[in-house]
Structures are given as structure tokens and as C-alpha cells.
Simulated scan of single mutants.
Amino acid sequence: MTRIIAGAAGSLRLDVPKSGTRPTSDRVREAIFSTLESWGLVDGARVLDLYAGSGALGLEAASRGASAVTLVEKHQQAAQVANRNTGTVLGAFGGSGSAPRVEVVRQSVQGFLDRAGAARWDVALLDPPYDLSEAELAANLTALVPLLAEDAAVLVERSSRSPEPSWPTGLAPVREKRYGETALWWAEPI
């Protein structure tokens, strides 16, 4: 079962696609958001969730106080699930003016990044399929660099058997943590 852990939508259950995604465990999501909150990067943040799947990472950020969340997912079934989950999470705000803006974009990650224009994000979460090539991930990270706010954080979630991402010019690694089969790599703009 996937659920929102904390915030306005805390404990709400989320749907997950029947196949093709690998939801981030509650334990790992809690670790991700504990880190982000300790860095002061959730409340009021603009969050980009790439390879969003069900939207659980970005919607957790919305529940915890992010002001805007963009979920990017190219697969139709997963994007439909992310849309349903967005409605569920936003419903927890009861129509109040404090609800974040959440957008689901059905497009490839690289296509989205290549056309994002002048957008600037405070937090970028990349949880690609484990079979995504290192070259594709490197291209994603390179395209992401000019779209980040000055004090942004970038998270890459991969298999613990994967190598560290190839960080492009403009991003510096700051932390690595492993949770069983999951590895988290953090970076920041330089």
C-alpha cells in the first residue's frame, strides 16, 4: 500500500499503476522528506517530480507544504493514476486557498526538460526506471541544471546496484544514502 505519510493529506492511500512502476517505499520517502525539511526545502517549494509514476513523491511534497508541484510521466496509465491521486490529495485541502498547484504532464522527461523554458524549481526528484541507461540519466541531469533555483536540491533514486550518476557541470554531489535495494544520491547547483 502506498500512502501519503505526513502533512495535510497524511495517511491518504494512493493508487499505483498495475505495472511499469516501482513505488518508493514509505521508509525511503520519509528519509527523503526528512532531509528536505532539514534543509528548509519543502514549505513553499516548487517541486519537479520526474518519472513520477503514481505521483507519490511530488504529492508527498504537496501535502507537506510545497506551493507548486509538476509531475512528469510519459506512460498513459501511470499519468492517469497520477491525475487521480492528485485529486485525492488536493481534496484533503478542502478547497482552501492553501492548496498547492499540482500539474500532471504526460510527456517524456527529456522532452519536458528540453522545452521547460524559464521555469525554476527548488527541488527536483528523479526516480527513473532501473533500466534507464546511464547516458539517458546524464542527459536528463544536464538539461535540468539551467532549470534549478540557486539553492535547489536534486535527488536521484536508483537501484543500490547502479553506479553513482554522472553529474554534469553545474551540479555537485552532496550526499549518498542506501536503504536496502534503493540508493539515494543528492546534488546541488554550483
Rank of each mutant, 00 (worst) to 15 (best):
R3M: 07
R3D: 03
R3C: 03
R3K: 12
I5T: 09
A6Y: 07
A8D: 08
G10Y: 11
S11P: 05
L14F: 08
D15L: 14
V16A: 14
K18N: 12
D26H: 06
V28M: 11
R29T: 07
S38I: 07
W39C: 09
W39M: 14
G40F: 09
G40N: 15
L41I: 00
V42M: 06
D43W: 00
A45P: 07
R46Q: 13
V47H: 01
L48M: 07
G53E: 10
S54A: 11
A56M: 10
L57G: 04
E60D: 11
A61S: 12
S63F: 06
G65Q: 09
A66W: 01
A68W: 02
A68S: 15
V72W: 03
K74T: 10
K74M: 12
K74R: 15
Q77V: 14
A78Q: 06
V81N: 09
V81P: 06
A82H: 01
R84E: 06
G87A: 13
G94I: 01
G95T: 12
G95M: 12
S96E: 13
A99L: 04
P100T: 13
V105S: 13
Q107G: 04
S108W: 00
Q110A: 14
G111M: 02
F112A: 00
R115F: 04
A118N: 15
D122A: 05
D122P: 06
V123R: 01
Y130R: 13
Y130W: 14
D131K: 13
D131A: 15
D131C: 06
A138D: 05
L141Q: 00
V145L: 09
L148N: 02
A149D: 13
A152W: 00
L155V: 10
L155M: 15
V156E: 01
R158I: 03
R158S: 13
S159G: 13
P163A: 14
S166G: 09
S166R: 14
A172C: 09
E176R: 13
K177H: 07
G180D: 04
T182P: 03
P189S: 08
P189L: 08
I190M: 12
